[in-house]
Amino acid sequence: MSERLRDKKALVTGSTSNIGRAIAEAFAAEGAHVVVSGRNAERGDEVVAGIRARGGRADFVAVDLDGSAEASRALAEQATAVLGGRLDILVNNAGIYPPSTTTTVDEKTFDRVYAVNVKAPFFLTAALAPAMAEAGGGAIVNLGSWISRLGIPVSALYSSTKGAMETLTRAWAAEFGPAGVRVNAISPGVVHEPMSDGAHAGDVMMVGTPAGRVGTPEEIAHAAVYLAGDEAGFVHGIVLDVDGGRTTAAVIAR
């Protein structure tokens, strides 16, 4: 690796599996000291051990980002302390996706999905962005989703939370950018780790795309490294589609 994030201090939420794990591993491989966070300590310790075995720097902080300001502030404080008092990069990746349609969502599920997917990153950003600015700058990378802009007849609740995150990306870019904190987002297509028991239910949604396949967590991580690093120093408030062309082009079978 080229150490594009050498000596940077990063927090990646929801980084014990899938996209979050790949981002944490990619950041560490590029020279960053990474705080891996999530609810499952066993999986978190496994990610940290793997990073350290490859010569990287990582620590695990257990947290349940339930949407309360207290939980987000506690994570901000713990991660900053573990990283020696400074944090340069925040990746708001943690989220939940309960399968549902509009008529099958109950109020408890609605509130929980918005709490985890929107409130938690909102208050985490509120806790960390001012400190980043005071320290000279930083980068925030949010995770959106292709279904926030290309409607499908299921998952209205989840897609609306990702739409909120993409809107917050633009608002935060305007709010924090002048103080040196760049805010951008990635909008992944259908992405998952290789499966040994057949196709993923969402795989069909990538049929008819230029890529013609699902994405890998590592492909999203490459985009996160770019947006977090100095190479993207003139990039503010964008949503970078890394979706195999799902939202931009259709391939017509002949």
Rank of each mutant, 00 (worst) to 15 (best):
residue 180 G to P: 06
residue 105 V to P: 00
residue 164 A to W: 10
residue 175 E to C: 06
residue 148 S to R: 05
residue 174 A to T: 15
residue 185 A to F: 06
residue 108 K to A: 15
residue 171 A to Y: 14
residue 126 A to C: 14
residue 125 T to V: 15
residue 116 V to H: 04
residue 192 H to A: 07
residue 163 G to L: 03
residue 160 S to I: 08
residue 104 T to F: 05
residue 178 P to A: 02
residue 120 A to N: 07
residue 166 E to G: 08
residue 177 G to A: 02
residue 112 R to P: 10
residue 178 P to Q: 03
residue 186 I to Q: 08
residue 119 K to W: 10
residue 104 T to S: 15
residue 189 G to R: 12
residue 169 T to K: 12
residue 184 N to A: 04
residue 189 G to Q: 06
residue 155 S to H: 14
residue 156 A to R: 00
residue 109 T to A: 13
residue 187 S to C: 05
residue 185 A to I: 01
residue 154 V to M: 05
residue 187 S to H: 08
residue 106 D to M: 03
residue 165 M to T: 11
residue 169 T to H: 13
residue 113 V to A: 09
residue 135 A to Q: 13
residue 119 K to T: 13
residue 114 Y to S: 06
residue 102 T to C: 03
residue 143 L to I: 14
residue 104 T to K: 10
residue 117 N to C: 11
residue 139 A to L: 07
residue 158 Y to D: 00
residue 136 G to L: 08
residue 102 T to L: 13
residue 109 T to H: 05
residue 174 A to Y: 13
residue 102 T to W: 00
residue 117 N to L: 05
residue 170 R to M: 11
residue 187 S to I: 04
residue 117 N to K: 12
residue 97 Y to H: 14
residue 173 A to K: 11
residue 125 T to L: 10
residue 131 A to T: 13
residue 169 T to S: 08
residue 107 E to C: 05
residue 157 L to T: 04
residue 167 T to M: 15
residue 188 P to Q: 01
residue 155 S to L: 13
residue 152 I to G: 09
residue 177 G to Q: 04
residue 152 I to Y: 03
residue 156 A to M: 01
residue 181 V to E: 03
residue 139 A to M: 02
residue 117 N to V: 09
residue 162 K to S: 07
residue 142 N to F: 00
residue 149 R to G: 13
residue 148 S to V: 02
residue 190 V to F: 06
residue 124 L to G: 10
residue 191 V to W: 01
residue 140 I to D: 03
residue 154 V to L: 11
residue 143 L to T: 13
residue 111 D to P: 05
residue 170 R to S: 14
residue 148 S to I: 01
residue 142 N to W: 00
residue 103 T to M: 06
residue 169 T to L: 11
residue 164 A to C: 04
residue 152 I to S: 05
residue 153 P to W: 00
residue 187 S to E: 02
residue 123 F to R: 06
residue 124 L to C: 07
residue 140 I to G: 06
residue 111 D to H: 14
residue 141 V to M: 01
residue 162 K to F: 10
residue 171 A to F: 12
residue 188 P to S: 00
residue 163 G to D: 00
residue 170 R to T: 14
residue 131 A to I: 09
residue 108 K to P: 00
residue 128 L to I: 05
residue 146 W to C: 06
residue 155 S to E: 12
residue 145 S to I: 01
residue 110 F to V: 08
